[in-house]
């Protein structure tokens, strides 16, 4: 496994260790490992069907593993004592439509030993103006904010946020990010699953990439980007594609009208050759791959690897 040894020796507050989970013939998790340290935000990324939801479901005690260890604060997540220390925001939960926001907060807070006051929760989640409104009368974005408020009302040590900003506009998303940062500053840990890579980039201390029920990468956002060494070069040039392609440093090139798009590991060398070969070259841009490219590259590699495995097996 590409599981880098963690320099922090403290016990993780949430842990999956060699976990296998099958649904009939489908293997959702196939030896999944995950460690979440106190105070960090770990983003769990992966394409649909990678096993993210199953991993979260195990850590919340909703399902049981077929093999391996699942621990939350060193306990079985199905123990209520462990879950009293977590807050949960799931991807889709239709809350009782006729209850008012304040009533939902009051109910959820009652499950916890030392919850925040409703006013404090509402302030943090930005729902102070919604407390008297019935849940069904809220917009989609407002409902997501209320769900976030329910997640943090119990003063949890660990927050599970499953796609928290789906359906939110940009402003609401920024506010939610700010609230998450505030919680992190207070020492709360967060396990975040998201489709928005910029969200992981903006918030995460570490990212963990899953495909096919396994973790294929775990490390800092920087480390994930560095895994993909390629840089992108764009410029307006009259050079033919074939000329550029013949250079050994260039791994990929395509032309779209006048503009050349080049991928290369050593951008500096290619840029030097470009400038030497075309004195009229304009609008030169060099960009390091973002998290999105890194992610696509990683999961594509994993897909190809698993395809090869299947071919070999066949």
């Amino acid at each position: 496994m590409p599981h880098t040894p963690d320099p922090i020796t403290r016990d993780p507050i949430a842990r999956l260790d060699g976990v296998v989970k099958r649904y009939g013939r489908l293997t959702a998790l196939d030896g999944a490992d995950l460690r979440l340290q106190r105070g960090e935000l770990l983003a769990l990324l992966g394409p649909n069907g990678a096993g993210k939801t199953t991993a979260i479901g195990l850590l919340l005690g909703l399902i049981r593993a077929d093999a391996g260890t699942v621990e939350l604060f060193g306990q079985d997540p199905q123990r209520i004592e462990a879950r009293r220390r977590i807050g949960v925001m799931l991807q889709n939960a239709e809350l009782p439509p006729t209850l008012r926001v304040g009533e939902l907060l009051r109910l959820t807070a009652s499950y916890y030993p030392a919850p925040r006051t409703p006013a404090e929760t509402a302030e943090l989640a930005g729902v102070s103006d919604l407390l008297e409104r019935p849940y069904a009368k809220l917009s989609g974005g407002q409902q997501r904010r209320v769900q976030f408020a329910l997640a943090l009302c119990g003063r949890p040590e660990l927050l599970f946020l499953d796609e928290p900003t789906v359906g939110m506009d940009i402003e609401a998303r920024q506010k939610l990010w700010a609230a998450i940062r505030q919680l992190l500053a207070e020492g709360c840990s967060v396990l975040l699953t998201t489709h928005y890579l910029e969200e992981a980039e903006a918030l995460a201390d570490r990212v963990c990439v899953m495909t096919h029920g396994r973790m294929i990468h775990e490390g800092t956002v920087e480390a994930l980007r560095a895994r993909v060494a390629l840089k992108r070069i764009r410029c307006l040039s009259t050079l033919s594609i074939d000329t550029v392609r013949s250079w050994s440093e260039v791994s990929e090139v395509r032309r779209d009208n006048e503009r050349l798009h080049i991928s290369a590991a050593e951008a500096e060398v290619v840029v030097r050759r470009l400038l030497a070969a075309d004195l009229q070259l304009r609008e030169l841009e060099v960009q390091r791959a973002g998290l999105a490219e890194a992610f696509t590259e990683l999961t594509r590699d994993a897909d190809e690897a698993s395809d090869t495995d299947q071919r070999e097996a066949a």
Partner: peptide, 19 residues
């Protein structure tokens, strides 16, 4: 039946609601 479908039951099971 509706709450099993709409995810509310799952949410409640994840929360520390007393048994």
């Amino acid at each position: 039946a509706l709450e099993r479908d709409g995810g509310l039951l799952t949410f409640k099971r994840a929360l520390p609601m007393p048994p």
